[in-house]
Design a binder for these strands. Structure first.
Lengths: 235, 235
DNA sequence: ACCTGAACACCGTTCAAGT
DNA sequence: ACCTGAACACCGTTCAAGT
């Protein structure tokens, strides 16, 4: 305690280094929040962790966001940016919609905790505006106009966000529990009388096999087929 | 302070009334948890509130559930029970799947906060078993068998849970913010240069009109149409 | 065997004080 | 104008103590 050794090389111990003026911005905070959410804990986005990630006092963030929910809404828009970064519309409206659908799936899967907390939010942010315009462009290209176009837009975007979002939520939750996502549907599921649930019993083995992306592809194709079937007559 | 009036009618002030032995069960706790979640706060399910709702010490619940997440998984199964209560399979497999799809939508909408926290959970509970068997029954009735039947099952149940769940999450979040769910998509959304986002600009008025259930119906019908189109040949 | 109460580490948010 | 630190009410979970 009194050896004084600590004083020898005068180790330039900086005081906690108060952050200089402009270092904290909404962009910097959102990126840090995304890193924290990617850190593995489903509910890992706390002000304490965010402050540490930024090298700032936890409460400094309140100068730029009004609440935790406000941060998450900005993260939602950032996630859209990641998803559509580099997107180019195709000559085929269907390929455009496929591309956007798979981009959402992949971005949500890569940032599953962030997606879980944001996929039901309307961000009103610049990237949401961009992707809404891009989807409407494809739908316009297919031939729909007015309310009919908006209805198709809603069916499509709603489907993509809901399916990609739930997949992300399941991944994030399984991650937290340290469980392989497909490891439900094992025997535990089947301790019952075979005669009581005959259909479950019949498919007890196949229920384990899951390729969630293949299922998603099937769902997207089902919607596209229905859209093709109700295409407006070419004028 | 010293008036002593309080003592006059000897008001039978019971001591906090320690709960008698068997009053707390998993069923009683799950029902109380659902009431708390229906109470209006999106993240309202706390042990403190749950204890108050039960008239018990908050920590008593730990004798019956291992964690907050464990309670929510049980709530998920209860929500399935509410959804399928009274379900009878139809002669038409498509009507059976429509019925189950709308039941999920309504149950999730009526218990939106509960649905928001549970719709991505695998419960392995008795009611999940029941509904999986019911869906497989309809798919069996349509003619699918084996892995193909399971793939259709996954497309269907996944779609229903994701769409009903995201709708519930949006309702619960809007509820919390005191916002009418459709009140996004107003002018705030459009402060931009019309030329930059032409399709968004063209549909700026229609984007406000939303009938989420009509959209859901369209999505369910799209999947059913795709299923009809890939029906196995009758042997 | 089941319920209670105190305790612990943590969390979102507010606000007066620093620079 | 922006960041910090102390403070407040709350939260999930543990565990020794009651009955």
């Amino acid at each position: 305690m009194m050896k004084g050794v600590e004083r020898l090389p005068a180790p330039q111990r900086k005081p906690p280094a108060r952050l200089s003026r402009g270092t904290l911005t909404r962009e910097v905070i959102v990126e840090a929040a995304l890193r924290v959410l990617d850190g593995g804990q489903v509910n890992g986005l706390t002000f304490a962790r965010l402050g540490k990630e930024l090298g700032a006092s936890p409460t400094a963030v309140y100068r730029h966001f009004s609440s935790r929910g406000d941060i998450l809404t900005a993260v939602a828009d950032e996630l859209i940016r990641i998803a559509i970064d580099g997107y180019q519309p195709s000559d085929s409206w269907q390929d455009s919609l496929r591309d956007l659908a798979y981009r959402a799936w992949r971005a949500f899967e890569q940032h599953s905790a962030a997606a879980m907390h944001t996929f039901y939010r309307v961000t009103l942010g610049p990237n949401e505006i961009r992707v809404v315009d891009a989807i409407l462009e494809a739908i316009h290209q297919a031939g729909w106009r007015g309310q009919e176009a908006v209805f198709k837009y809603q069916m499509y975007s709603n489907l993509v966000l809901a399916l990609s979002g739930r997949n992300a939520a399941m991944l994030a939750a399984a991650d937290e529990a340290g469980v392989t996502p497909g490891s439900f549907w094992t025997q535990e599921y089947m301790p019952t009388n075979p005669a009581e649930f005959p259909y479950l019993w019949e498919h007890r083995d196949d229920l384990r096999l899951k390729d969630n992306f293949a299922v998603y592809q099937g769902q997207v194709e089902a919607l596209l087929a229905a859209m093709r079937a109700s295409l407006p007559a070419v004028s």
